[in-house]
Amino acid sequence: SASLEDVKTAVLGLLVILQTKLYTLPASHATRVYEMLVSHIQLHYKHSYTLPIASSIRLQAFDFLLLLRADSLHRLGLPNKDGVVRFSPYCVCDYMEPERGSEKKTSGPLSPPTGPPGPAPAGPAVRLGSVPYSLLFRVLLQCLKQESDWKVLKLVLGRLPESLRYKVLIFTSPCSVDQLCSALCSMLSGPKTLERLRGAPEGF
């Protein structure tokens, strides 16, 4: 439990870093931090981490990651405290083949985003970082199938509809809506759902 406290501190630090690096160059920093966060949550489900502190780590990670939004130009952003989304000039939600690297070039400044813009690109060529939603999407499927803490599952179920409104997140990387529907149906009809959940409301 003591070591998990250190892990929790590290994860919180990564969330803060991602919130900053999403809007700064090099964009590969945001890509790497995002991948680290998603990989860490995957390990929770792989090794069945069920301690309360592990659940709190997942809760905080999902609470942040499910706020990711994308505009029509595929640029990622996060809402501010007033709910207004600021889109990044440097990070996009497109999935890119590994051989192309985590970044790609664009020939010049991008068109203005639909929300308040981030800082304008400084040079004639900007390297865009790929932060594909499919990585998070796979972890969300694991959550629906394996999550043991009701608070975490409730958060994910509550945030998913709003995330799905931003269709560009889903359609720019390999996210299977069929698998999502299947996971939701299995969660509702499967007898093991109630068996594994802690803290579920009576009558769920």
Rank of each mutant, 00 (worst) to 15 (best):
S1F: 04
A2F: 08
S3W: 04
S3Y: 07
V7Q: 02
K8D: 04
L12M: 13
G13Y: 00
L18F: 14
Q19I: 02
L22K: 02
Y23A: 04
Y23G: 04
Y23N: 05
L25K: 12
H29V: 02
H29I: 02
R32V: 05
V33C: 09
V33T: 08
E35P: 02
H40M: 02
Q42M: 10
Q42F: 10
H44N: 01
Y45S: 00
S48C: 11
T50Y: 09
L51T: 10
P52H: 05
I53S: 03
A54K: 01
I57K: 00
R58C: 00
D63N: 11
L73M: 12
H74D: 03
D82R: 09
D82C: 08
V85F: 15
V85I: 15
S88L: 01
C93S: 08
D94S: 09
Y95P: 09
E103Q: 12
E103T: 10
K104S: 10
K105M: 12
G108E: 10
P109C: 12
P109T: 14
P109F: 12
P109D: 13
S111A: 12
T114I: 15
G115S: 14
P117R: 15
G118D: 15
G118K: 14
G118V: 14
L128C: 11
G129W: 07
V131S: 04
P132F: 02
S134K: 05
S134E: 05
S134G: 06
F137D: 02
L140V: 09
L140P: 00
L144A: 01
K145Y: 14
Q146W: 13
W150L: 04
L153K: 01
K154Q: 11
K154Y: 05
L155F: 09
G158I: 07
R159N: 05
P161H: 11
Y166L: 06
L169W: 05
F171G: 08
S173Y: 03
L180F: 06
C181Q: 05
C181D: 00
C185D: 02
S186A: 14
L188N: 01
L188Y: 05
S189Y: 07
S189R: 11
L194T: 09
L197I: 12
R198V: 10
R198K: 14
R198D: 08
G199F: 10
G199Q: 09
A200K: 14
A200I: 12
A200M: 12
P201A: 06
E202V: 13
G203A: 09
F204S: 04
